[in-house]
């Protein structure tokens, strides 16, 4: 039986009378790569922001396993197991590459003020472990050579990569990628494709991907959900979506 990990049911959100998201329901199954697509202004990013806790849905429900996400703030959403990246990369630019990762790792640890203040052995051990863990994670993505450079001085493609690594560091059940191919050229997109497939299998993750690049989505997604004007208009495997009349209309306009 297919186990669902995240389920949205009848989610609605309007901004001052404009319905940004209307009655959207879909499920993400464990270990799948679900693509969320739609033309500009379809409400993709809004759905993302509802899931990650920045917007509160007016009605409907969102559950991660048994946990209801509706009332959680973004930091709590992360704690229950959802990590995300951003369309316009949001790294901590002046922190070094490894510190970006350590920051994500340390959120999972209960720190003691006493030990940190007196810099006890226990505290120093924890710090050392965090760094080792961060470095070994970076090594998997061959970023370990750059560990101590400030993250803002990385080239664009590597910044994307680091943002994904940082999200992985918070040990999520579900990873949400918000237009990771934005601003990438052909060969960078190819690398990204491999990267996504790699983390999906290697970390046994469920991935939700918002993307504009149709080729990428059709290539790597297991299933696809299509939004248009805040409503879900289609759901299915890539081949079905390609043939779906409504989807073609949404993207190309009605043929008259």
């Amino acid at each position: 039986m297919i186990k669902s990990i995240l389920s949205l049911k009848n989610v609605n959100l309007s901004f001052g009378g404009i319905k940004a998201v209307q009655d959207v329901s879909f499920e993400i199954h464990e270990n799948e790569l679900l693509g969320l697509i739609g033309p500009n202004g379809a409400g993709k990013t809004t759905v993302f922001n509802i899931i990650s806790g920045f917007y509160k849905a007016d009605t409907g429900s969102i559950d991660l396993g048994d946990v209801c996400l509706l009332k959680l703030a973004p930091d709590q959403v992360n704690k229950v197991g959802i990590a995300r990246t951003f369309q316009n990369i949001r790294l901590f630019g002046n922190l070094s590459v490894v510190e970006n990762v350590i920051f994500a790792l340390q959120q999972k640890i209960d720190h003691s003020w006493f030990h940190s203040l007196f810099r006890t052995k226990k505290y120093l051990d924890i710090e050392a472990t965090l760094r080792t863990r961060a470095l070994s994670l970076l090594k998997i993505f061959s970023l370990d050579q750059l560990a101590d450079t400030p993250s803002k001085s990385l080239p664009y493609g590597l910044q994307r990569k680091l943002e994904i690594v940082r999200a992985l560091a918070s040990d999520p059940k579900l990873l949400i990628l918000d237009e990771p191919a934005a601003g990438m050229n052909h060969s960078e997109t190819e690398d990204l494709k491999k990267l996504i497939q790699f983390i999906k299998t290697e970390f046994k993750l469920t991935v939700l991907l918002i993307e504009h690049d149709m080729k990428l989505v059709m290539n790597i997604c297991d299933r696809i959900v299509v939004l248009n004007r805040g409503e879900k208009i289609a759901e299915g495997i890539p081949a079905e979506i390609k043939a779906n009349k409504q989807v073609i209309e949404a993207y190309l306009g009605k043929r008259s």
Partner: peptide, 28 residues
């Protein structure tokens, strides 16, 4: 000590990018 501790790192990340820090699990 606090500046170079995990707490200092939290604060530093927060003032680099609040939204990202929040998404990574730090209550602002």
């Amino acid at each position: 000590s606090l500046k170079i501790s995990w707490f200092g790192r939290n604060l530093w990340a927060l003032n680099e990018d609040e939204i990202a820090a929040e998404v990574m699990g730090t209550p602002i």
